[in-house]
Simulated scan of single mutants.
Amino acid sequence: MKKFIGTGVALVTPFNADHSVDVTALTHIVEHVIQGGIEYLVALGTTAENAVLTPEEKQLVVDTILKANNKRLPIVLGIGGNNTAAVVNELKTTNLEAIDAILSVSPFYNKPTQEGIYQHFKAVSEASPKPIIIYNVPGRTASNMLPETVIRLANDFDNIIAVKEAAGDIVQAMRLIQLAPKDFLVISGDDMITLPMVYAGGAGVISVIGQGYPKQFSEMVRYAFAGNISGANKLHYKIMPAIDYIFEEGNPAGIKAVFEKLGIATATVRLPLVEASQTLKEKLNNFTDQLNS
């Protein structure tokens, strides 16, 4: 459980100009975030453009991350979807030996009831040999996994150890923190409200911005845990403009523009996403120059 307290990062999948997976860049990104002080890595989440990767490419991404990490940090692997049977099959057939936990998104598009969400994760729990972080992101799934459902799952299944809460609703997050059983982790899935969630008793964040600026963002979270409120607030307000910027034209177009500026990877994304505009790139370039000056 303690492995997932602090700052995790939802890694991008960098592409070459021909849209093939850039293994070299991904290796550099893993090193960049480890040296920046983050606590764990998340592979094949939404930020990884998981939806447009082939099964072979997904395996390449995982293998690259595992090799680059070399057992230094815990690894969380995204396995989720809106076809419960397919998710269960993937959990049963994927080699999870080197994986520390599963991140599984609430079913999207189908818009299940709360009971449907519960039954989905019941099946996921029963199939998974690894601890599970359930993921609520209503902006993408079109359904909100309510605190009552999360707490019910937390109480009923020992291997459901955490929720990544990305509704962008601090009140909902505080209700989860208040009602969660002991040792169940409420992890922010929203960079902008990570700090107030930690102040309220949250376990940290699975971040997008944290992979671009890992030192500053992970230090902010550690300051918050240590009670250094002024230090944490100072870093939050310093980074805050970039959080707006990276989501201005969708994720991961913004964070990939940051990597382009840092000289680590191209800004290339796959359709239906498009690369960040030049206007947005200029905003992020100026921010990065000021942050590192």
Rank of each mutant, 00 (worst) to 15 (best):
I160E: 07
V163Q: 06
A162I: 01
I160R: 03
F157N: 09
K164H: 00
T149V: 06
I170D: 13
D158F: 01
N136T: 04
Q172I: 07
D158G: 08
P147V: 09
E148K: 11
V163K: 01
N159R: 05
F184L: 07
I133V: 14
S128M: 04
P129K: 08
L146G: 08
V137I: 14
I134E: 03
F184S: 02
I151H: 09
G139D: 08
F184D: 06
A173H: 02
V150R: 00
A167N: 11
S125K: 00
S125E: 06
P131V: 09
K164I: 00
L185V: 02
P138Y: 06
S188C: 08
F157H: 09
V137W: 01
D183A: 05
P196A: 06
I193L: 13
E165K: 07
G189W: 03
P129D: 14
A167S: 15
K182V: 13
M145K: 03
T149N: 11
F121G: 04
M192T: 12
A162F: 09
D158V: 00
G189Q: 04
S188W: 02
I161T: 10
E148M: 10
Y135H: 07
V198G: 07
Q119V: 06
A142N: 12
F121Y: 07
S188L: 04
I151D: 11
P138H: 02
H120P: 10
T194I: 04
D190A: 01
K164T: 03
P129F: 01
M192I: 13
Q178N: 15
L195Q: 02
D190G: 00
